[in-house]
Amino acid sequence: KQVRVEPGQTTYKPDFGFLVAYGQRKFKVAGGVKPSGEPSVLRRSAAWLKDLLTKTKHDYAVIIAPFISREGAAICRDVGVGFIDLSGNCLLSLEGLYIERTGYPNKFKKPREIQSLFSPKSSRVIRCLLSDPGRVWTLKGLATETGVSIGLIHRIATALENNLFAKKELRAFKLEDPARLLEAWREEYSRRAPKWARYVVRIGSIEDLVAKLKATAIHHGVRYALSGPSGASLISQYMTPTMVHFYVDVLKQEFLEELKADRVPSEGNLLIRVVEQENEFIGSREVKDVYVVSDLQLYLDLWAMGGRGQEAAEELRRERLQF
């Protein structure tokens, strides 16, 4: 019957609070607003809000997001928090009041035009643009730099402008919102990235494994680059690696045999992915005598890990990418 917004007043402050009056009962509700309703985001947010209830005088908590799937709804229900999304789904479970609406489709699906920006060939252009986000590019110059046809460059520039990522003037254009473009790319990358092949190599430490991988790759003529936490740890101590993410241009049997690497279905301390179009190698550099992928590729791979990987990705973004 009544909802009144209240500002937070404690150290453990939600994004907003409101009062729900139902009959003679009143409930003080804490709210958290999230730009994404992905399960990994919901797990962290729901746990934080549930913990907040023990530290404040709120009776209940809800998460607000653009869309929350059935899987996300189950996460909220299991933790004991409610949700309201902007696609028509909701869950409120208060004493004497229960409202649940699920099954409404996502109204915020990315247009196909945006998805096409991050196809393997198009992403070469996006990678180039984000590597120097302040630069003004001509279509011809970008085609020369990336090896992509001028026709595709024109379509990409139009799509970027249509989605307010860039501003086009005559035959030149410049990124207007590199941060939002990076965020759109990371979500699409996480969705479509191929899985890593997992192996166990019995060796003393991660440092020993990296040294052995480098020596074995050189011996067998394999191009390589580190990524993930093991690559990021060579640049800054975002997180302590417990495994090595290793890109190669070809996976040779003799390479695996020399490593004594055993394939496993899960876990493992060595994750290998074969690069198909050299995109992941673009911008790779030598750091402490080992090749590491570019900061952009590090960010994408860390984000795709979820959990602490995403926290490390955001640290990398603040310190190195700065947009």
Rank of each mutant, 00 (worst) to 15 (best):
Q2E: 04
V5E: 06
G8E: 00
G8R: 00
T10H: 15
T10N: 12
T11I: 05
G17D: 00
F18W: 13
L19D: 01
Y22Q: 08
K26C: 01
F27V: 03
K28Y: 14
A30Y: 14
G31I: 00
G32D: 04
S45W: 12
L49I: 08
L52C: 13
T56S: 11
T56I: 03
K57N: 05
H58S: 06
Y60A: 04
A61K: 02
V62F: 11
I63L: 10
A65Y: 04
F67A: 01
A73F: 08
A74V: 06
D78H: 10
F83T: 02
C90A: 11
L91M: 04
L94P: 05
G96Y: 14
L97C: 01
Y98P: 02
R101Q: 05
T102A: 08
P105V: 07
R112Y: 10
R112D: 05
F118R: 01
S119K: 08
K121N: 04
K121R: 10
R127F: 13
C128T: 09
C128V: 04
S131C: 03
P133D: 07
R135M: 02
G141Y: 15
L142W: 07
T144E: 13
E145S: 12
T146Y: 10
S149H: 14
I150Y: 14
L152G: 07
H154E: 03
I156F: 08
A157K: 03
T158K: 15
T158E: 10
L160P: 02
L160M: 09
L160S: 10
N163Y: 11
N163I: 01
F165A: 03
A166D: 03
K167A: 11
K168M: 00
E169T: 13
L170Q: 06
A179Q: 11
A179C: 11
A184V: 05
W185V: 12
R192V: 01
A193N: 06
P194R: 06
P194G: 05
K195V: 02
A197D: 10
Y199C: 01
I203S: 05
I203K: 07
I203H: 04
G204Y: 05
I206S: 12
E207K: 14
E207G: 10
D208F: 08
L213F: 15
T216M: 04
R223I: 03
A225K: 06
G228Q: 06
P229I: 01
G231I: 04
I235N: 06
S236Q: 15
S236N: 15
M239C: 05
M239I: 09
T240Q: 13
F246R: 09
V250L: 11
L251A: 14
K252R: 15
Q253P: 00
L256K: 05
L256G: 03
L259M: 00
P265D: 10
P265R: 15
S266V: 05
S266K: 10
N269P: 06
L270G: 05
R273A: 01
R285S: 05
R285V: 00
K288Q: 12
V290N: 13
V290D: 12
Y291H: 15
D295P: 05
L298V: 03
L302C: 11
A313F: 14
L316M: 08
Q322F: 15
F323D: 09
